[in-house]
Computed example of a mutant assay.
Amino acid sequence: MEFCDECGSMMKTEGDMWVCGSCGAETPREAATESGMVTTQGQEAGEVVDLSDSEADARPTTEIQCVECDNDRAYWELKQIRAADESETRFFTCTECGHKWREDDH
């Protein structure tokens, strides 16, 4: 990838020149410099792995009683819902019934 010295825009290749799409500035291409550049051309597509089913299992859990189903396990997460100088609020989601609540709701 090359950037224009005149305006800072990204340049594209046209033959043996780098050409700026914004201001039209041109710079000669140098094979030695370009040999260290990484391109996406010719790269093989990797295997796409769907993690959506395992995503819930990756969340941290803790021992806490659900008021809806009496299950004793819940996922938890911290969120900043007030001003930055205030502490985070912990949210729970029951691992059995999916009931959601905040730490101060109980």
Rank of each mutant, 00 (worst) to 15 (best):
Gly42Tyr: 05
Glu88Thr: 01
Glu68Leu: 05
Val38Lys: 02
Ser9Cys: 15
Leu51Ala: 10
Glu30Arg: 05
Thr89Met: 02
Lys79Phe: 10
Met10Trp: 10
Arg73Tyr: 06
Cys7Thr: 10
Arg90Ser: 00
Met1Ser: 15
Ala56Asn: 07
Ala83Met: 07
Ser54Met: 11
Phe92Tyr: 13
Glu47Lys: 10
Phe91Pro: 00
Leu51Val: 10
Thr89Lys: 01
Val48Pro: 02
Pro28Arg: 06
Asn71Leu: 09
Gln43Leu: 13
Met1Arg: 12
Glu96Asn: 04
Gly15Pro: 14
Ala45His: 04
Thr27Asn: 08
Lys79Ile: 14
Thr62Ser: 12
Ala74Arg: 08
Gly24Asn: 06
Glu44Gln: 06
Asp5Leu: 13
Gly98Ile: 00
Glu14Ile: 14
Ala84Met: 06
Asp104His: 07
Cys23Thr: 05
Ser52Leu: 13
Glu30Ala: 02
Ala74Gly: 15
Met37Pro: 02
Ser35Ala: 12
Thr62Pro: 08
Glu63Asn: 12
Cys23Asp: 07
Lys100Cys: 15
Thr39Pro: 03
Asp85Ala: 10
Cys97Phe: 01
Arg102Tyr: 03
Glu6Met: 11
Met11Gly: 11
Asp50Cys: 10
Ser52Asn: 11
Thr27Leu: 13
Val67Cys: 02
Asp53Gly: 07
Ile64Met: 02
Arg59Ser: 05
Asp85Lys: 03
Cys94Trp: 02
Cys4His: 08
Val38Cys: 01
Glu2Arg: 13
Ala32Glu: 15
Cys23Arg: 00
Glu88Leu: 05
Met10Ala: 15
Thr62Trp: 02
Gly21His: 01
Val19Lys: 12
Thr13Cys: 11
Ala56Pro: 02
Val38Pro: 02
Glu55Asp: 06
Glu103Lys: 06
Thr39Lys: 07
Val67Tyr: 00
Glu30Tyr: 08
Ser87Ile: 02
Glu26Leu: 04
Leu51Asn: 06
Trp76Glu: 01
Glu2Asp: 09
His99Met: 04
Ser22Val: 14
Thr40Phe: 11
Glu55Trp: 09
Asp104Pro: 06
Ala32Gly: 05
Ala31Gln: 02
Ala45Arg: 10
Arg82Leu: 14
Ala32Trp: 11
Ser35Thr: 08
Ala25His: 05
Ser22Ile: 14
Tyr75Gly: 07
Asp53Phe: 05
Asp72Glu: 13
Met17Val: 02
Arg73Ile: 15
Thr40Leu: 14
Asp16Cys: 11
Asp105Gln: 14
Glu26Trp: 00
Met17Tyr: 05
Glu2Ala: 05
Thr62Lys: 05
Gly24Asp: 04
Ser54Pro: 03
Leu51Cys: 10
Ala84Ile: 13
Glu86Gly: 03
Asp5Pro: 15
Ile81Asn: 11
Ala58Phe: 07
Thr27Asp: 07
Ile64Tyr: 04
Glu86Thr: 08
Glu47Phe: 08
Ala45Met: 13
Gln80Asp: 08
Lys79Ala: 10
Thr13Val: 13
Ile81Asp: 04
Met10Arg: 14
Ala58His: 00
Ala74Phe: 10
Ala31Glu: 09
Glu77Lys: 14
Phe92Pro: 04
Cys94Phe: 01
Glu44Lys: 07
Arg73Leu: 15
Phe91Ala: 01
Val49Gly: 09
Gly24Thr: 08
Gly46His: 09
His106Thr: 11
Trp18Lys: 06
Met10Gly: 15
Ala45Glu: 10
Lys12Ala: 14
Ile81Phe: 09
Glu68Arg: 05
Ile64Ser: 03
Glu44Gly: 12
Cys66His: 04
